[in-house]
Amino acid sequence: CHSECLGNCSQPDDPTKCVACRNFYLDGRCVETCPPPYYHFQDWRCVNFSFCQDLHHKCKNSRRQGCHQYVIHNNKCIPECPSGYTMNSSNLLCTPCLGPCPKVCHLLEGEKTIDSVTSAQELRGCTVINGSLIINIRGGNNLAAELEANLGLIEEISGYLKIRRSYALVSLSFFRKLRLIRGETLEIGNYSFYALDNQNLRQLWDWSKHNLTITQGKLFFHYNPKLCLSEIHKMEEVSGTKGRQERNDIALKTNGDQASCENELLKFSYIRTSFDKILLRWEPYWPPDFRDLLGFMLFYKEAPYQNVTEFDGQDACGSNSWTVVDIDPPLRSNDPKSQNHPGWLMRGLKPWTQYAIFVKTLVTFSDERRTYGAKSDIIYVQTDATNPSVPLDPISVSNSSSQIILKWKPPSDPNGNITHYLVFWERQAEDSELFELDYCLKGLKLPSRTWSPPFESEDSQKHNQSEYEDSAGECCSCPKTDSQILKELEESSFRKTFEDYLHNVVFVPRKT
């Protein structure tokens, strides 16, 4: 048989008469490798580009789960590009990614509803959504962080984005990388972005840091009482949809009607710091009717980097990364020049730590249904340095008659930039024990000054392991946590139920 035959053949030295091919099969003959313009397919066939392209389009058009959109890589027609490569849609070739590779997620039936953290986790790592997304989240724990972890990498949506009755959302900033909504599939009414009845939605994105392009379709905003109209108009300008909307697409009466839409800028007039305090004062603000001013709200939190936005980490279910302080308005003076500047002394802060701070007014709604208010920009203030805590785990070892090696770990709280350490030492008198000992005694162990690591005695271990207080009263049991108490109650309830079950099964009433 021919060298490319495997198993047997019907005619000697003829690659077209093989029972099976050793390498690849091409047009009725066995070959060692697939010549151009053919590609290896499933490690035994040679196919042309049209064959591989037909497989790709067949799966793409069917949208069946589990099928493969075949691509070409290293002269092979394979189910998908290997790690580190992405497909070129024009020629199906796998090309190296520039940075992290995109991950295209194809949605069944063309859309997916995100109504819980669990459903959001199914899209973790996706960068391109081939379909439409509907966000409908009523509640949950730590929602802002969970949504950002699972949806934060999405850069492109081919269909539309719909935010509907998501009472738990305060902001859409968890879509931190969303840059493009194509609108290839539109919501009824030709809408590519749809926001309806979101009672706590206050911000779409921080438009000073976020760009969003909507290729096709219109915007729809109705019944978002805490979303200011200025935020919607800003989205029109940034996304390129200005002029597409009709009169009733953006409701003037049901958007922002319960919001404090600040239209003035508060400026800080005085800032002073110490290692654990920050004193702030800002310019006074009074609405047209000074009785509408209820006070100020001061927001602050630790910020290692200057990239904080107002609604980071917030949701309507209680999660809030900001510390909020309510401040009463100052006494009002008739003389504008003698107006008191409101302020606040922030206490209990960490030394040498940068804080993000902003302040906003708290006002009631005027009778004319106009909203007044003022808010400052987010500023960054760093507390002063102070003395560091003591170095940890000092170790001293003498390696000769004239040297001592000293080692330690950095302090747990540096409280500033540590530039150097101060080492103090003092000579001590020799131990009298060394002169009084009889060095001729056998088995004498000389006193040693070398360091030995501390260890816990058996008594201390027994005390720590004991669940009861000892007789001397030195140790006591740790208080039980809520989960331990709940577990004990469940076990007790189970024992009672099981005992009742045994009584009912074992003891049967005697027939009379």
Rank of each mutant, 00 (worst) to 15 (best):
N190Q: 15
I278T: 03
L143W: 15
P336S: 08
E146F: 11
P288R: 14
K277F: 04
K301M: 06
Y191I: 13
F299K: 04
H222P: 00
R247E: 03
L293H: 04
V128T: 10
E302H: 15
N387T: 10
N307I: 13
R247S: 10
L147P: 01
L279K: 15
I135N: 00
Y167T: 12
S389Q: 07
E237Q: 12
C317S: 03
G343E: 15
K103W: 12
Q199K: 09
E262N: 05
S166V: 03
Q245I: 10
Q306M: 02
S192P: 03
G159C: 02
L345Y: 12
A374P: 13
A149C: 08
N340V: 11
S269I: 10
M346A: 10
L349E: 00
L172R: 00
F175K: 01
V104P: 03
S119D: 11
V308R: 04
T127R: 07
Q203D: 04
Y160R: 05
V324P: 09
S319C: 12
R247Y: 04
L123R: 00
P342R: 06
I154F: 01
S333E: 14
A120V: 08
V381R: 06
L180N: 06
R370G: 10
L406T: 05
E155F: 15
I278R: 00
G256V: 06
K267H: 06
H233L: 02
I379G: 02
A356V: 02
L204I: 14
G343P: 04
L298R: 00
R347P: 10
N340D: 13
N399F: 12
F174L: 11
C126G: 01
A356K: 01
D115I: 05
P336L: 05
S208L: 14
F268I: 06
L133P: 01
L265M: 12
S396L: 11
N190V: 07
S389N: 13
V397H: 13
E236A: 12
N248L: 11
G373F: 14
R291M: 14
L172S: 03
R291A: 03
Q199R: 11
A195H: 04
I250A: 14
L107G: 06
K375L: 14
I379V: 11
S338H: 09
W322A: 02
C317W: 04
W205P: 01
C105T: 00
I379W: 04
I163C: 05
L186A: 03
L229K: 08
R124P: 02
S321K: 07
I181M: 02
E187W: 07
Y223S: 12
K234H: 14
D206I: 04
Y380A: 02
G152Q: 15
G256M: 06
N190R: 06
P288W: 08
R347S: 05
L345C: 06
P351Y: 13
V128Y: 12
L153E: 15
H233K: 15
N211C: 13
M346D: 00
I379P: 00
T254I: 14
L298E: 00
S376R: 00
E246V: 07
L279S: 06
T215M: 11
S401R: 15
S119W: 03
V397R: 07
L108Q: 06
T383Q: 00
A120Q: 08
G131R: 00
I357V: 06
S401N: 15
Y372D: 06
F296Q: 14
P410R: 12
Q403M: 11
M297R: 03
A251Q: 12
E237S: 12
T254Y: 05
E109A: 12
E109F: 02
S132V: 01
S158T: 12
E156Q: 14
C317G: 02
W286H: 01
K242V: 15
W205C: 04
F365R: 02
R247N: 04
I157S: 00
S239R: 10
L180V: 11
N142S: 07
Q258M: 07
Y191E: 09
D197L: 12
N263L: 08
F290N: 14
L345V: 08
D115T: 12
I250P: 04
R179K: 13
R281H: 05
K360D: 04
I181Y: 00
S171H: 14
K234G: 08
H106D: 14
A251L: 09
L294K: 13
T215R: 15
S333C: 07
W344R: 07
L252E: 03
L266N: 01
N307Y: 02
K301F: 03
I163T: 06
L172G: 02
N224V: 01
F220N: 12
P329I: 03
V325S: 13
F174R: 01
N211A: 13
A259V: 11
Q199A: 10
T383S: 05
R369H: 02
N142M: 13
T118A: 04
S274H: 03
N248M: 08
A356T: 02
K350M: 04
N340A: 07
G140I: 07
L280Y: 00
A316V: 02
G295W: 07
K177E: 09
A303M: 04
S132Y: 01
P287S: 10
F299H: 13
N141V: 14
D289E: 03
D249L: 11
L108A: 09
C228N: 02
N255H: 03
L107A: 09
P391S: 01
R138N: 04
F220K: 13
G159H: 02
L196G: 08
D292V: 03
A149F: 07
K337P: 14
F174Q: 02
P342K: 05
S166Q: 04
Y191H: 12
